[in-house]
Design a binder for these strands. Sequence first.
DNA 1: CTGTTAGCGCATTCAA
DNA 2: TTGAATGCGCTAACAG
Lengths: 342, 342
Amino acid sequence: MKKKITLKKIAKEFDVSISTVSKALKDSHEISEEVKEKIQAFAKYYHYKPNSLALNLRNQKTKTIGIIIPQIVHHFFTKVISGIEKIANEKGYNVMICMSNESYEKEVLNMDMLANGIVDGIIVSVTKETEEKGDYSHFKDLIYNGIPLVMFDRVIKEIKCNKVLTNDIDGGYIATKHLINIGCKNIAILTTPDFVTVGNLRKEGYVNALNKHQITIDENLIIKVNEKQDIENQIKKLFTLKNSPDGIFAVNEIYAAIAMKVANKKGLKVPDDISVIGFTDGLISQYSSPSLTTVAQHGYHMGQKAIELLLDEINSQITEYQYQTSIIETDLIFRESTKKSL
Amino acid sequence: MKKKITLKKIAKEFDVSISTVSKALKDSHEISEEVKEKIQAFAKYYHYKPNSLALNLRNQKTKTIGIIIPQIVHHFFTKVISGIEKIANEKGYNVMICMSNESYEKEVLNMDMLANGIVDGIIVSVTKETEEKGDYSHFKDLIYNGIPLVMFDRVIKEIKCNKVLTNDIDGGYIATKHLINIGCKNIAILTTPDFVTVGNLRKEGYVNALNKHQITIDENLIIKVNEKQDIENQIKKLFTLKNSPDGIFAVNEIYAAIAMKVANKKGLKVPDDISVIGFTDGLISQYSSPSLTTVAQHGYHMGQKAIELLLDEINSQITEYQYQTSIIETDLIFRESTKKSL
DNA sequence: CTGTTAGCGCATTCAA
DNA sequence: TTGAATGCGCTAACAG
């Protein structure tokens, strides 16, 4: 492996000092045209690039920000990343993405890696495992070390930092309300286990909507999906109830897609016999048949908000910085999986 | 913003030298238990972490490798990343992901960022724009600078480096052959414009399969999808032909999903009236109804191979390193969108 | 057992 | 117009 060309080597080549080379490459007026020209030509020829490690070490900042997300498959996270990148690039920052794979341990590892001077700030969405475990010391460490942190979507209440949230309660509410509006009587929900905050909040919206319309909550219609077991089987139970559902609200698009499949297998037609509504406007929602009516999360916008807050904190001189929590509203996207309004 | 704690500060605190602190924190036998204890306690209390920039600068390596991919939505890329991460982590490397968003310019920017000492090597899948443009100088620069590079999936022939490829020709071949086997007579292909190499190769497999079975190629059945225009409309044309297709091979799963939708709208049932086969075993393939028969690309395996080649080159002492091209075979995954064999 | 020194690559202040 | 010296944070060879 060849070694990279450095200022030192260029300096030796022309028998000048390193600082002369440095200045010449910066086109400084301190250096004679003649010297500048030959040094610049040489540097260009040898593809000289300043070593960013050295630069960053010197400048005490890296102009790159780190993102840690639990999964990369989710369209939602993709959108968030795009939003972050857009603004970051505009402001001259680069972006580095790390996957925690829903693993607490990897989350900690990634944070450690990023925290050691490699980035100027971190944007994170917490893994389910961390939520379940309840150990947040790695976040505290980070903040203690003075590295700005923004949490989005999956957020830890106890940690003091900027946050960007989906209005999950309202999302669950409007989804459920839509099912009520189109005449569904037995509305089931496919949600996550309790420790997953966003699932819980969406369920809260579901409950609120039912309450508001004087519909009594039927615990049998609430399925807390255990992803470690066969999901289809868990959903199938719904159709053995005597008040079998005519509407299903799934807290993510995968559960929604599986629900449609199960319904089909039971001989029910979507949306004629049963309406299904999802959460997150991802590829599955768009390309499933029928395409899914769903709650859009505006991930792109969330990403933009997150990076704005982060850069705000990075560039802030204030000692007592005031943290904010920004709530991004959701919207219903009407497609083919729910009946038209009555 | 607080500033990070450094060896220097700890040294000042205890009025010892920096190297004493450094050694104490490494639990060196050179340092007395007493001093070690108090320094370690202090460091722990203040969450001391060595600055990786400084470490990397000193060690001339970062133990992190960079990945540049065109899109993050593709399940395939996700799998590749997972494969890369798995091996990388096992070998003590961390992974940094950059998105080029199919933009030549962003690809160059990302490479520049990564190339300046921040990573020990780079794994890249080239953007469509770069393939179209044909400007590969950023890759040449990288190699010139001695930074190991591995290309996967979308690869540039002219660049000398390690490569990992899907056997796209064979993938196209087995997909088409499957359609032939189940009795399809008019087999259409939904492919990309010519400059997208992988699309072209998959089409080559399609052509080979038809030739082998003495089926004449009908140019009308070859749709080169222009993603800048409405895709559904382009596919619809197939169904106005007098030899309307009874089988469709789509070179990716999105085209396949759209094809199914268009077929449905035309009143055709999949797979009874028309069989559809995709490429890439992603979420859409799994969750669409009917689920898609598709060509699996084994992204996870590709990622593993790519990182193995990269680490091999990174750790190689040989001056005349021999580059390899590794071909990953594909497999057919049978699901619901194609008829059962005759 | 502890400290001094040098060097990784770079930019910058100050001196010549 | 050029160069020497300093420091960013860290480690390691070497001296004491």
